[in-house]
Design a protein around this nucleic acid. Structure first.
Length: 423
RNA sequence: GGAGAGAUGGCAGAGCGGUUGAAUGCGGCGGUCUUGAAAACCGUUGAAGGUUUGUAGCCUUCCGGGGGUUCGAAUCCCUCUCUCUCCGCCA
């Protein structure tokens, strides 16, 4: 959520900036609602003040055995106006907060202007794609040996966009997650968490998935529904919802390995082959809760922590800054890390690291007590470190051998107990 | 699933339907004392919103969420959520 002060002061300027992010903010409607709210609220508060004063008089008079008829008369005159004023105020405020809740974050000044992913800007490239002296296969073909990756089986069990992994492939997948957690906890000072995979609507609202992205979520059918988490960012960040932490305890660095569930509504036909885009995938997620002054340093650290995993796995990648047209709803700045996939002859997203500044913190009232003694909003960051399924794809494809087997990256050998897997 | 108890400020914990935004303790902050610190003592200390040039005043709201009774609700009633205890069931 954007700062309401900012919206009030100059909604037109905000609308102008959002326009560059291709979001159409109805600033005139906002300003109009805001003016009415101001009037109604001060009227209501004046009436409430009267009510309180008269009420106290009645108490006093009754105790002294006085006559309260006149006061009772005043009260009944107040009642109607107060009630309708309160109703008006409530509906005005509901409209305003709905408008605010659906408005994306403003981007940082360093974010490049652009309309889509073609305008993202590469900031660095690491490693050199390997030269193959044979025709490369993609992970689907490589995994079909011995049914190590079985998409048909998953379709039978559930439907499209799921996978069954078997034998050494399942183990390689597990090893990757384990390896990532170990690096982040042992080398990058993260605290490991194991969190619920189902969360309530308040949590999804806090991180910004609700109300706008309801259609992307899996939801239970209960009267009070739960949602399957689309990312561990949701439970991790919401641990700080409606909480005031000590300034000295900042920053918090959290890591969790969870499954993630996404409806992928609107991406029909995209990446239908293989496990690049699944309804269920696993991810090791990194979350920072930081002092507002440090959030951009923290973002660089966070990206570095995620990149480190690819470096240790010796997978070539590049890092890009998302432009205003491609950046997500709650982010002020986002780096995507894209790993080299030889079968696609291109770099594909494997991590997305964002600084949300105070956007999520304001929604969820995540605060710290600063030197002033007043609670201030923290800044929140999140990033994949990394998407496990996509990392598996990258390992399979980059480490494939001529005979269709897959050699195991050096750092994973102690986890697997072998240096090569094959169906 | 059955029976009962509870949810109050950063934390713990009082609270008769009217002067309770809320006792008390801890913690925090300021001070006295001290070479410094601790201890002790004194003082201070909730959040959100509105108004305003204002971190000054003034006003409003908030005692788990929602609804109700009442001139007036932290206090009474209903309901939901969560926590705890006992019984049953269960990975």
């Amino acid at each position: 959520m954007l700062d309401p002060q900012l919206l009030r002061k100059d909604p037109e300027a905000v609308a102008k900036r959002l326009k560059a992010q291709s979001f159409d903010f109805d600033w005139q409607r906002y300003a109009d609602l805001e003016n009415r709210r101001k009037q109604v609220q001060s009227d209501v508060e004046a009436m409430q003040g009267d009510r309180n004063r008269i009420s106290k008089q009645i108490g006093k008079l009754k105790r002294d055995g006085g006559n309260v008829e006149q006061q009772m008369e005043q009260m009944s005159q107040l009642a109607d106006g107060l009630k309708s004023g309160q109703d008006d105020l409530a509906s005005l405020q509901a409209e305003l907060s709905e408008l605010a809740a659906g408005t994306p974050n403003l981007t940082h000044e360093s974010v490049p202007i652009g309309s889509n992913e073609d305008d993202n800007v590469e900031v660095r490239k690491w490693g050199t794609p390997r030269a193959f002296d044979f025709d490369v296969k993609d992970h689907v073909d490589l995994g079909s040996a011995g049914a190590m990756l079985d998409f048909d089986m998953a379709a039978k069990l559930t439907g499209s966009r799921f996978v069954v992994m078997q034998g050494q492939m399942a183990r390689l997948h597990r090893a990757l997650a384990q390896f990532m957690l170990d690096v982040h906890t042992q080398e990058h000072q993260y605290t490991e968490y194991n969190v619920p995979f189902l969360v309530n609507p308040d949590s999804l609202h806090g991180t910004g998935q609700l109300p706008k992205f309801e259609d992307d979520q899996f939801r239970t059918t209960d009267d009070s529904p739960y949602y399957l988490i689309p990312t561990a960012e949701v439970p991790l960040t919401n641990m700080f919802r409606e909480r005031i932490v000590e300034e000295a305890d900042l920053p918090y660095r959290c890591v969790a390995h969870t499954p993630c569930f996404r409806r992928e509504a609107g991406s029909y036909g995209r990446d239908t082959r293989g496990m690049i885009r699944q309804h269920q995938f696993e991810k090791v997620e990194l979350v920072h809760i930081v002092h507002p002054e440090n959030s951009y340093e923290a973002l660089e650290e966070l990206v570095g922590n995620a990149e480190k995993i690819l470096q240790k796995l010796e997978l070539p990648y590049r890092t890009v800054t998302l432009c205003t047209g491609d950046i997500g709803f709650g982010a002020a700045k986002t780096y995507d890390i894209e790993v080299w996939l030889p079968a696609q002859d291109t770099y594909r997203e494997i991590s997305s690291c964002s600084n949300c500044e105070d956007f999520q913190a304001r929604r969820m009232k995540a605060r710290f007590r600063g030197k002033s003694g007043k609670p201030e909003l923290v800044h929140t960051l999140n990033g994949s470190g990394l998407a496990v399924g996509r990392t598996l794809v990258a390992v399979i494809e980059n480490y494939q051998q001529k005979d269709g087997s897959i050699s195991v990256p050096e750092v994973l050998r102690s986890y697997l107990g072998c240096d090569r897997i094959s169906g």
